[in-house]
């Protein structure tokens, strides 16, 4: 193994050859994994096709899950009410470290989740992204769609240790949770105009071609709702740092990533499904989550999230997001 730190990039031990040279004009700058962390290399669809030990029927189900993950818009109007697909945030087919790889949910759940205060299964974790990130309604637990999605997640987890939680590149949080002191809407706006608007549009509404989403919206009716993980400024900052602009991971400074995350999360979006009728009160009720968002606070003279707009979704709360207790 090489120890040349100029050859930054990815954890090269598990990467296939052809590491981007140090003189790259647009280097891929990703964080180093910490010593002792488990570094996973998720299998690809090509690996699946080549693996003869997989029963053909299972292969079909995993491929169905892959297809739903990559093009979740096929469920538009049924389970999805915004312009997102799973891969829109879990970039690189949900496989890539630092891009919110989804397989850890298959090896670390069931486990307790602070967001809904009970022990969650893999299906419930996926349901969470349907309810918030997709501004939708999760497919029924145990349904064909759910089975296909969980099968794809579990396939990606192939040979990862079960309940190992010290995982390299998991989630979006490596910049920490502390918002920098010099955070400002105006600075974020400038970063946005220079680096993001070309794809996501000046109005944050993204771009479509022939009715298909090419560049997803960052705010407005087509975007993730006020209960989504990305509304947390720190989550968005880490996502952006390691994934945006598309094809240029790590190119923004940490500070620019924070500023632009602050800016996009200062814009309106569909209501939090947990809304009580008052954004400030909802913020207080879910303060563990919303202390990291700008929801229910005064931004440019308006209380963010004080509205009844659920976007295209004809209801507020999905019926199958339920509390659970073993008392």
């Amino acid at each position: 193994m090489k120890h040349n730190f100029m050859l930054l990039t990815v954890v090269s031990a598990v990467m296939s050859t052809q590491v981007v040279a140090s003189d790259a004009k647009v280097p891929v700058n990703l964080p180093e994994s910490k010593p002792g962390q488990y570094v996973h290399q998720a299998p690809t669809i090509d690996d699946l096709m080549a693996d003869e030990s997989v029963h053909p029927e299972l292969r079909k189900v995993i491929l169905k899950g892959y297809d739903l993950f990559m093009n979740t818009q096929q469920l538009r109007g049924e389970y999805v009410f915004n312009d997102m697909s799973c891969k829109t945030c879990h970039m690189g087919e949900g496989r890539m470290n630092w891009s919110g790889p989804v397989w850890p949910a298959a090896t670390t759940l069931p486990d307790y989740r602070g967001k809904n205060k009970h022990v969650n299964s893999l299906e419930e974790r996926i349901a969470g992204c349907f309810a918030y990130s997709m501004n939708g309604q999760p497919p029924a637990y145990g349904s064909d769609d759910m089975l296909a999605l969980t099968a794809y997640h579990q396939w990606l987890a192939k040979s990862a240790p079960v309940y190992e939680k010290n995982i390299s590149g998991r989630g979006f949080s490596h910049l920490g949770k502390q918002i920098p002191d010099d955070i400002s809407y105006a600075k974020g706006e400038a970063v946005y105009a220079a680096n993001c608007a070309i794809c996501h549009g000046n109005d944050g509404a993204g771009q479509k071609k022939d009715g298909k989403v090419v560049f997803p919206p960052l705010w407005g009716d087509g975007a993730y709702n006020w209960g989504a993980g990305l509304t947390r400024v720190f989550t968005a900052a880490s996502f952006i740092k390691n994934n945006m602009p598309l094809s240029k991971p790590g190119s923004l400074s940490d500070n620019d990533a924070w500023q632009v995350a602050w800016y996009i999360n200062s814009q309106e979006r569909p209501q939090d499904p947990r809304y009580t009728g008052d954004a400030r009160a909802t913020r207080e009720q879910f303060i563990d989550f919303h202390k990291h968002t700008r929801y229910g606070t005064d931004v440019n003279g308006k209380v963010l999230g004080q509205h009844d707009n659920t976007g295209e979704k004809p209801f507020l709360k999905p019926s199958n997001l339920k509390p659970r207790t073993f008392e």
């Binding site: 890539m96 071609k209 090419v214």
Partner: peptide, 26 residues
């Protein structure tokens, strides 16, 4: 249509649009 993510190469389609027929003037 799918790219080569292990090398941080997104699909051409993700910017050039459906079937790579282009998006806007950029």
């Amino acid at each position: 249509n799918r790219g080569d993510w292990d090398q941080y190469i997104p699909a051409c389609e993700s910017c050039h649009g459906p079937d790579n027929q282009g998006v806007g003037s950029t």
